[in-house]
Design a protein around this nucleic acid. Structure first.
Length: 790
DNA sequence: ATCATAACGCTTTTT
DNA sequence: GCGTTATGAT
């Protein structure tokens, strides 16, 4: 290579690197390696977000200069000299030198950076615009789902969906599924909605259409799968007819669009020069396909992730995506970020020790220069209340020594554990922040108001229409709605169309007037929507629908609270309009549909945080408590004996441990009430996997013996005998004097004979054939109050 | 139509 | 043990 070229490239790279003085070697490499497939294995607390942001900054400012042998067209000795001078200390030359270092700076909209959470996308956007100004706003920093919405809004018609399709949330789809199963006359015991949704998700995740799935089910002998195929078909048709997509549909349809429509695929492959995917270890097959399709043109795909922090396999995420990245892209480069900037070394080495027991991993070892810090403390409590008390005591002590409450977090495996912890804190005058789903948008009154909005925009949305048609009460009964829905189905039109022409159907004659009234009101609101701002529309809606009046007229606390919430929605609308500059109904609904995360609303309150380990991913706290570190709880009962699930539990433990910056407490309880029954548990195996030099264990604590059902027994030092999980106490039988064959007299159903008695949860389900009332199934305990033997 | 009682089901859940 | 949901009685 000619010397000038060599020099220019080297010097240019140094000029660029000057922009990123705070990065370590690996981080800098990850920022500067712009071209081709790149896998960044970013350990917990290794500055992943910083790398992502600086990488985007580098692309925007210098294009591919840091990773290319190519010279800009007019490169010459003079320009090289300017860069040299700048590097040698002539700061006046900075601007000029930086210009000479550029090679095709990337337009911001040619970069797509996909994350999982709105929070991550928001943080990316914010830090980018802080660093680079408004230009950064055009970078596609979005969640998977919001990127899909944007893509589908442009081309959904190619899949025969309306471009104005609406989005169904989790509750919506459960409702649809239940209805679907009912309408198919399938037994909801053999086909629970949850099961059906799960089957359907898996099918869609493999890109199987209802037809594909049916074909597959036909081949299988499994009759249940044939039912599932019918369910899938009906469910998909329902959503399609309503112009609606659920969350997975957004991915599924985006992938189908990109796969089957060359023009669309081409458009995006040309548009996006660089594709970045965050949290790659949590991608499912559809997300993997989407990433692959988007990056298919130039193969400039950079994925960031940590196989050790993959904790969403149960939702379809597959760790394979990250493990096989190098097979998928043969020339992929791999960069490991192993320096941890978060935790002290006792904590970090504990985490390393635990995760080392996993087999399916790329292998990575975090290190820190922060020093040893404190050892981990293990506390073995008598029961969950004792455990909670201990944790509160530690927090209070720390606060007395000047700590902030907000520096403390309590993590647990399942939400049910929060109760005893919350109570213990409340008893001590601390109101903890409990991170749970998002209550606000799940409140009935909010869903009602949103349903009105959705129907205004998309009258074909039968589900939402049915939700609000009689709320507040308009004397439109269930039967009327059912009849209308049946008519709609028979004619292949949306429900709204039927009720708009109620007078045409004799079946609806009796309710026609009321339906017309409702339709007129909605029509009026639709007109209003075209001319006024969102806020005004909302006020108008509260008034015209009489929703506000309904709440005002009642005077219970609950209704006052609802009224408050309804008002709060208005301020949310106002905030949305102000911050996004978007005052369209469609824009608002898109945002709300995908932005379910209002948990950070009160995030700045100075108090202790309680949450599941899953929700804690990505966060850090100076002091962390991991509560309930017991066999059967963490790892969970169902993971024991299942090696794949056990590895996921172990990754979860790894995530939990690595949340702590300075002080980590691990607690467990010898006895604990789980689902109404007291159980004894041993200390979690993950505690034993922490090298002993990093953890202080109470002297009474000996090491247990484990049996892994999927492998050879792993002998350890024996554990005190009483620690064996005890059998649940024998069910107390109700000694009520009834038996099969007895004749009984019931206060309501009169006389009959007991045909069958099935023990059930300490009670009996009795089947009684009454002479007048037919066969009834009753719970004996309850029924015996109204019933006597004759 | 509205309320009450009974049955169920239950790890985690970024969207 | 507890909250949610489905069903049935008034």
């Amino acid at each position: 290579m000619d010397l000038f070229l060599q020099n220019y490239i080297k010097t240019r790279r140094e000029v660029i690197a000057r922009n990123f003085p705070h990065l370590n070697d690996q981080q800098a490499q990850a920022v500067l390696a712009t071209e081709g497939p790149l896998l960044i294995l970013a350990g917990a607390g290794s500055g992943k977000t910083t790398v992502l942001i600086n990488r985007v900054a580098n692309l925007l400012k210098y294009g591919r200069a840091s990773d290319s042998d190519e010279l800009p067209p007019n490169a010459d000795e003079n320009k090289l000299a300017v860069m040299r001078a700048y590097l040698d200390g002539d700061d006046a030359k900075k601007c000029e030198a930086e210009t000479y270092a550029e090679l095709d700076p990337v337009e911001p909209w040619r970069i797509i950076a996909i994350t999982f959470t709105n929070k991550a996308a928001g943080e990316l956007k914010e830090r980018l615009s802080r660093m680079l100004g408004t230009a950064a706003e055009d970078v596609w920093a979005r969640t998977f789902h919001s990127a899909c919405v944007r893509i589908l809004r442009r081309d959904a018609d190619k899949l025969n969906y309306p471009k104005s399709f609406t989005i169904y949330d989790e509750q919506d789809r459960v409702a649809i599924m239940k209805r679907t199963i009912k309408e198919l006359n399938l037994d909801d015991k053999t086909y629970p909605a949850k099961w059906a949704l799960n089957v359907l998700d898996h099918a869609r995740n493999e890109l199987l259409s209802p037809e594909d799935f049916a074909a597959r089910a036909e081949k299988a002998i499994d009759y249940r799968m044939k039912g599932a195929a019918d369910i899938y078909r009906a469910y998909a048709a329902k959503l399609f007819d309503a112009g609606a997509m659920d969350f997975d549909d957004l991915l599924y349809n985006t992938v189908r669009l990109l796969r089957d429509h060359e023009d669309v695929r081409d458009y995006y492959q040309r548009l996006f020069k660089y594709v970045l995917i965050d949290e790659y270890q949590d991608t499912n097959n559809l997300q993997y396909l989407m990433a692959t399709l988007l990056a298919g043109g130039r193969k400039n795909i950079c994925v960031v992730g940590d196989d050790d922090q993959s904790i969403y396999a149960f939702r379809g995420a597959t760790i394979e995506n990250i493990l096989s990245f190098e097979d998928q892209y043969k020339n992929a480069r791999v960069i490991r970020l192993e320096q941890n900037y978060r935790s002290t070394s006792h904590i970090l080495d504990a985490a390393n020790g635990v995760i080392a027991n996993n087999v399916s991993r790329k292998g990575k070892k975090l290190w820190t220069d922060k020093g040893e810090g404190d050892r981990i403390t293990l506390y073995i409590a008598k029961n969950e209340d004792d455990e909670a008390q201990y944790i509160v005591r530690q927090v209070l002590q720390a606060v007395q020594q000047g700590d902030n409450l907000r520096d403390h977090a309590v993590l647990y495996r399942m939400n049910a554990q929060s109760r005893s912890l919350e109570q213990a804190f409340l008893r001590n005058g601390i109101r903890p922040r409990i991170v749970k789903g998002n209550p606000f948008f799940e409140r009935a009154e909010i869903k009602d108001m949103m349903a009105y909005f959705f129907v205004l925009l998309n009258p074909a949305d039968d589900l939402r229409l049915q939700r609000i048609i009689n709320v507040p009460s308009r004397s439109i009964g269930e039967k009327t709605v059912d009849t209308a829905a049946a008519l709609a189905a028979r004619n292949g039109v949306p429900l709204f169309t039927v009720i708009s022409h109620a007078e045409m159907f004799p079946e609806l004659a009796r309710s026609a007037e009321k339906l017309k009234c409702f339709v007129d009101m909605m029509d009026g609101l639709m007109k209003t929507a075209e001319s006024v701002s969102l806020e005004e529309l909302y006020d108008e809606m509260l008034d015209k629908t009489a929703y506000a009046r309904m709440l005002e007229e009642k005077h219970t606390d609950e209704d006052l609270n609802r009224l408050e919430n309804v008002k709060e929605l208005k301020s949310f609308i106002a905030t949305h309009a102000a911050t996004t500059g978007d005052n369209t109904l469609a824009g608002f609904l898109d945002e709300v549909s995908l932005y379910t995360d209002l948990q950070n609303m009160d995030a700045d309150e100075n108090t202790v945080t309680l949450m599941t380990v899953h929700s804690a991913k990505g966060l850090e706290f100076p002091t962390v408590f991991i509560a309930g570190m017991e066999e059967g709880l963490f790892p969970s009962l169902q993971a024991i004996g299942e090696s794949a699930q056990m590895e996921e539990e172990r990754r979860l433990a790894y995530v939990a441990i690595t949340r702590a910056k300075e002080k980590l407490y691990i607690t467990c309880a010898r006895q604990r009430m789980v689902f109404g029954q007291t159980a004894s548990h041993r200390v979690s195996r993950f505690v034993d996997e922490i090298p002993p030099e990093h953890i202080d264990r109470p002297y009474t604590d000996l090491k247990p013996t484990y049996f892994d059902f999927d492998g050879a027994p792993k002998p350890r030092t024996p554990w005190p005998p009483q620690e064996k999980t005890i059998a649940p106490p024998a069910k107390k039988e109700v000694r009520l004097d009834f038996a099969v064959g007895d004749r009984v007299r019931h206060s309501a159903f009169k006389e009959g004979r007991i045909m069958k008695m099935t023990p059930m949860g300490g009670d009996f389900l009795v089947e009684i054939e009454f002479e007048g009332a037919g066969i009834k199934r009753l719970m004996l305990k309850a029924a015996s109050r109204y019933m006597e033997k004759i």
